[in-house]
């Protein structure tokens, strides 16, 4: 019988620990597929963060390094500078990247480290039990914003892609979502583009992926996808903020 579809070799057979309806699984698969399709899985070294995807080193079928909270871009810098021929990526959530790790991500972009960052933004701290993140929406209730996030005391949600697009060293910045089959395809295309630019030695690329957290949002998976569309995608518009051509022309 002809094989029409099979799991990517980019992922191991380990069953993930992610909650039902969480879109981390889709994003993992996209990264795994891209690494496999580009034929770089055996050259790849990934860096896992602290947060829900802390155990990503069990799921990606390549060499992996587990970093301290927020420090993945620094760890990836260390790896890539010593092994420039390898493909190096970080996989980070919004607590990791947009809060504790802002210095590391800004400076990795600033130096235009030739790495690729997958930034999973679900507007909440998942692993620790649903606390407010810098990316949490105004009015969104979390365990540390029980009355809803208030801009007066906690600021407005941080727009990482828009911010990094201002950093001269950022080669590729795109925000995608994985809430519909169409968006999943676009997300994969963006991830592939960022890795291709890395392979071409063009410098730092980041893909912000809007993701759901049904458990901590207190919604079922379908409603979570709808909430993502009605809230996150409104405040965090999808699209490309920077691409290599543009950097060249600038």
């Amino acid at each position: 019988m002809a094989v029409v579809f099979q799991k990517t070799r980019g992922l191991t057979d380990v069953e993930t620990h992610y909650c039902p309806g969480c879109t981390h699984g889709i994003i993992h698969r996209l990264v795994g597929e891209v690494l496999e399709e580009l034929g770089v899985l055996d050259e790849a070294i990934g860096v896992a963060p602290v947060g829900c995807s802390v155990l990503a080193y069990n799921y990606f079928n390549c060499d992996m390094s587990e970093a301290a909270h927020g420090r993945a871009p620094a760890v990836a810098t260390g790896i890539k500078r010593l092994l420039p021929e390898n493909v190096v990526f970080t996989y980070q959530g919004d607590g990791d990247l947009a809060s504790i790790g802002t210095a590391e991500i800004v400076h990795a972009a600033h130096r235009s480290e030739n790495i690729t960052t997958i930034f999973v933004n679900n507007a909440i701290y998942g692993m620790t039990g649903g606390q407010m993140a810098p990316t949490t929406m105004i009015g969104q209730r979390t365990t540390t914003s029980p009355y809803g996030r208030d801009a007066a005391t906690t600021g407005m949600p941080i727009k990482i892609s828009e911010m990094l697009a201002q950093v001269p060293g950022a080669t590729f910045v795109e925000r995608v979502a994985v809430n519909t089959p169409g968006n999943v395809r676009k997300a994969k295309k963006a991830i592939k583009r960022a890795f291709e630019l890395q392979l071409a030695g063009k410098g730092f690329g980041i893909i912000e992926v809007l993701s759901t957290c049904p458990t901590n949002w207190g919604l079922d998976p379908v409603k979570a996808l709808r909430w993502l569309e009605d809230n996150l995608m409104v405040y965090y518009p999808l699209g490309n903020f920077r691409d290599y051509q543009e950097v060249e022309n600038a």
Binding site: V47, S65, A67, A68, R71, A74, V75, A76, T77, G78, I79, K80, R81, L82, L83, A103, E104, V106, H107, H110
Partner: peptide
């Protein structure tokens, strides 16, 4: 030689580099 953005970043670069 790389001058990191902070000591925190520098030691984590060492972590990544030592891993190679």
């Amino acid at each position: 030689y790389l001058q990191a953005e902070s000591e925190v970043a520098a030691i984590n670069m060492v972590y990544g580099a030592a891993g190679t």
